[in-house]
Design a protein around this nucleic acid. Structure first.
Lengths: 247, 247
DNA sequence: CGTATAGTTGATTAGTATCAACGCTAGTGG
DNA sequence: CCACTAGCGTTGATACTAATCAACTATACG
């Protein structure tokens, strides 16, 4: 496969770089679904990827586009969303380092993927990944586990969208962001909010105004602090967690 | 593995029945994820299942229960739901013949599963299914594909819950039920509604009253007919479909 | 420094929830 | 066989949360 142009953005065909094929652990950190794979298997995987850096607010693919690649985020942030014909938008998820996206049926991608911040991704063609999955059972297993994890998250989001109040929605959102921070070894507070209020609103099934008002309320109640744009301090974890669970 | 008691309900350890191990196609029809498997593989799968018949309104497992089995519906209808501490409920999905449920993380089932009508299911222990997945790559692939399919459906449901109006929600619900009917070779109208209004409400993020009012409105507008409880005639497919898509 | 965009706040509206009553249906027991 | 009861579904009146519309402020960018 020749190195592909990626809509004019910087491409590194990392398989050709010595540092990547030799330093196994680097690749593991870089490509989410490498965990559990052997050195050789990781090398095989690395040999079929394309590594690229995308600017902020860059549309990686649109809902309905022909499905050709699966993406893994090395670092940065991405949002996935679906649109109704009249422009109403539902953000399906916010993705960060280690997350993958681009799975779907054969009918085309079922959501649009857009970067929030400048983002580095690895791309794999579906075709190559499929054949590799045939060869490396653990890879297929890992993909399955990741799909199940996404499914569980989607089900929790349904509960949020269908049954939680605005306050509970925002609280849940903050708690989950904090938990993710902690999981990857970063402080649970302050938590980074790289996405806009509009993105948050479309993720929680609210309007910008309601999100803004709810943040203001939580701040007035001293449950959170908003020291700077893109940052949120969680002052009272227990209260926030209870609120998130609807207690 | 000895034949297991299943909470007092009828159990058939079908692997012991000649008709099942010999009539491959019957098993295929019966166990959803058998599609694509060879005769031998299906036999292997059949050898580890338990077939049982459950009454209506029977709780198969609860959210948080230890994950031990994966279930495949032979016939009948099942609902999956999550609860908030104060009793608010979100129905995650309605399942019918050929659908599977019981996937999840190691922390316990992430939803409660309850039959709607009397239902026949096949059970597989996670442990045995896992080891079989190791032996039969196509089985693992099939499970992966089913998880992705569920994920895509969950994402569409997020759009519905977060951004659609009551009318659009009900229209979408009816259209999807009809599409499923057609997919399995049954008429798209009238469509069977085995679930209660309360279940529909909790699936669409509405109240019973709103669901009832919306059905009545659609009936007044001659878009649907409600000839009998548990049945819905779709009079104007195009209008309903447009409404479902938010046009 | 000026402009555009994002975010906040306020006033009002609208859609759906809530509360309440009633009708229908199915199952039960006399 | 039929009255009785319980649960489900429908309809009406009212309340309330969040949406909409509008104005203003803060921030980022050229």
């Amino acid at each position: 496969m020749p190195p592909l142009d990626f809509d004019g953005h910087k491409i590194e065909h990392v398989a050709d770089l010595k540092s990547s094929t030799c330093r196994n652990c680097d690749i593991v950190r870089e490509i989410a679904f490498c965990a559990d794979l052997s050195h050789d298997e990781v090398k095989r995987l690395a040999s079929v990827r394309c590594h690229s850096t995308l600017p902020a607010s860059y549309t990686v693919f649109r809902e309905g586009d022909l499905v050709d690649h699966v993406y893994s985020i090395s670092n940065g942030a991405v949002k996935l969303y679906k649109l109704l014909p009249d422009g109403r938008r539902q953000v399906i998820g916010f993705l960060f380092s280690g997350d993958i996206f681009g799975l779907g049926t054969n009918d085309g991608y079922c959501y649009t993927a857009e970067t929030i911040t400048p983002t580095q991704v690895c791309r794999f063609t579906h075709r190559k990944l499929d054949s590799l999955m045939g060869e490396i059972p653990r890879l297929e297993r890992r993909m399955f586990d990741m799909a199940v994890k996404d499914l569980v998250a989607a089900q929790e989001q349904m509960l949020l969208l269908g049954r939680k109040t605005a306050r509970e929605k925002v609280a849940t959102f903050l708690v989950k962001l904090a938990q993710r921070s902690i999981r990857i070894g970063q402080p649970g507070s302050p938590v980074a909010l790289p996405m806009s209020r509009a993105d948050i609103a479309d993720y929680l099934g609210l309007t910008v105004e309601t999100v803004s008002r709810t943040f203001t309320q939580l701040k007035r109640d001293n449950i959170i602090g908003l020291p700077a744009s893109g940052q949120c301090v969680l002052n009272d974890w227990d209260v926030l967690k209870e609120m998130a669970e609807g207690a």
